[in-house]
Each structure stands twice: as C-alpha cells, then as structure tokens.
C-alpha cells in the first residue's frame, strides 16, 4: 500500500514537473529514485509531443490563402538576424581550435615585394603583428564565447542552488592528469554541474576523448554501471569549464571520475585510463 502511494506521489510530481515545474525539494524527491527519474523523462517527452502535435496542426491550419501575410506577422515577432546570432554562438561554442599561426603566416606571405627589401620586411612585420593581435583578440573573444557561458552558468548554479556542492579534483594515474587541478560543481536537485580544469592535457578527439562518470556512492567497485556524464574535449592547456551532460537523473551523486575513452565515449568503461576523481566526504 505504501509503495503504491509512493508511486502515485512520484507520478504526481512527474506530471507537475512536465507542465509547470518543480521546486528544488520536489525535484530532489522525484529524481532520487530511478523510477521517479524515468517517470520524469517519460512525461516530459509526452508533454513535448503533445505540444508538437498542436503546433503542427496549427501550422497546417494556416495553410491557406493568407499564408504570406500571416508569415509577415512572424517576421515582426522574430528579431532580424536571430538565425545568424544563433549560428555565431553555436560556432563559438563548438569551436575547439583557433587559427592563430596560419593567420600570421598568411599575412607574411601577403607582403608586397615591390617596396624593396626593407619596406617589404616592415610591411611583413606589421602584418604579422596586426594578424597576431587580431588573431589573439579573436581567440579571446571565441574563448569567452566558448567558456564564458559555462562559467557564468557554473557561478549561477552555485548562487542559486542551495545544494550545490563544490569538490576538488584529485589527479589519478593517466598521463594527461599531470599538473591537473580544478573542481567540480554539482547540484543533485537540478541534476546539473560543471567541471573546471586547469592543466588537463589537450586531447585529439579523433583518437581519444575524456568521459565523465557519476557514481551514486563512494565505493566505485560496487557500481559497475555509473551514470554517463558525457564526453568532452580539451583544446588548450589552460582553464576550461565543461558542462556536465548527465544522461540520466543521478539523484545523489557521491563520486565523479574522468576517464579517457575512444572517440564518442563508451557505455561501460574498463576504467583503465583514470584521469581524475572528485568525491563527497562521507
């Protein structure tokens, strides 16, 4: 009887979450069990498909003679250049490498020879400086666009989530972890977190990728199937902030482990290439 009422309660919370959202304590209650997490995912998806069905029907409903004039209404509602701004941000977010060296070389090659040897060198030098400055500035802007958002979100999580935990990374045995430091920020209630790394070696995503694993406890051997926290890459040997992409609702996270895996990540890690670990105090 008790189990039945518990399931009813979770069902109620999942429906509430899929339609008007949950308070932190309610979300924690719902996501603390696998059944609750599955319910939440199932009803979220159901609500999305219902919404799509209505939008599709409404779209088809307007398939008439006034279609062109109605479309103009949408143009007014949607800001000009939205698509371009979305693309710019996506490009910045997904960019992994900066074109600094090639830009500098291109400038050097472009120096005019007709100005004589010294003039040519001066122009070439100026072009190199200009290109280097511009490339560095571009790199800064892209870096901000790529990492700034995650950094802002991480800080916001700390500020807004009462249960947000900040844990230090402990470097493990893999060579990429030499000189590694940083921390992980995680909220059980929001199932959201961010990894901050300094000194984590850049990887070539064509060969290997980093992958995060989230354990509910602290005895790793007792959990053969931790939650996949997503694969990620590090492009430069400097501070990076990586959002955690938990594939499932974790509930209470006890331990976070980063491994090195084949491109795309794996479903089950053999745990042979251990990079870093962060663990809650028991």
């Amino acid at each position: 009887m008790r189990a039945s009422s518990d399931r009813e309660r979770l069902f109620e919370l999942a429906a509430l979450g899929a339609t008007e959202g949950l308070a932190d304590d309610e979300a924690r209650e719902l996501l603390s069990t696998q059944h609750g997490a599955r319910l939440a995912a199932a009803l979220d998806e159901a609500a999305a498909t219902v919404h799509l069905a209505y939008l599709a029907a409404r779209s088809a409903q307007s398939d008439g003679a006034a279609e062109r004039s109605e479309a103009r209404v949408d143009e007014l509602a949607r800001p000009v250049g939205l698509h371009e701004r979305l693309l710019a941000r996506a490009t910045a977010q997904l960019a992994g490498e900066q074109p600094r060296p090639s830009a500098a070389r291109a400038g050097q090659r472009g120096a005019p020879r007709v100005l004589g040897q010294w003039a040519g060198w001066l122009v070439a030098a100026a072009a190199v400086v200009l290109c280097t400055v511009m490339a560095a500035r571009l790199a800064e802007l892209q870096e901000f666009a790529r990492l700034g958002d995650s950094g802002v979100r991480r800080d916001r999580l700390v500020a807004e989530a009462p249960d947000a935990a900040v844990l230090d990374w402990t470097p493990l045995t893999h060579e990429s972890a030499q000189g590694l430091s940083g921390r992980i920020t995680w909220s059980d209630a929001r199932n959201e977190g961010y990894m901050t790394f300094r000194g984590l070696a850049p990887n070539d995503p064509r060969d290997e990728q980093y992958q995060l694993w989230i354990f509910r406890g602290t005895d790793l051997a007792a959990e053969p199937h931790p939650v996949d926290g997503g694969v990620f890459d590090v492009a430069e040997d400097r501070e990076v902030v990586v959002p955690i992409d938990a594939k499932l609702a974790v509930g209470r996270a006890g331990t976070f482990v980063v491994t090195v895996e084949p491109p795309g990540g794996v479903v089950v890690s053999d745990r042979s290439k251990l990079v870093a670990l962060a663990q809650r105090a028991i």
Binding site: A46, T49, V50, L52, A53, L55, A56, A57, R58, S59, A60, Q61, S62, D63, E67, E70, A71, V73, D74, A77, R78
Partner: peptide, 27 residues
C-alpha cells in the same frame, strides 16, 4: 497572433515525426 511559427514556412518544414502523430491520435 503571438504564437509565431504557427504561420511560419520554416515550421512546416520541421520534421514533425510520427510520435507527434501518435500524440494527436491519443489526444
């Protein structure tokens, strides 16, 4: 009039998959 997209050509091109059809059938 403030449900933009309803009249938008691009929305029509969205691959509204068959689960949306299932939702419609269930509704």
């Amino acid at each position: 009039d403030f449900l933009p997209g309803a009249e938008d050509d691009a929305l029509r091109l969205v691959d509204v998959a068959d689960e949306a059809g299932l939702a419609a059938a269930a509704l």
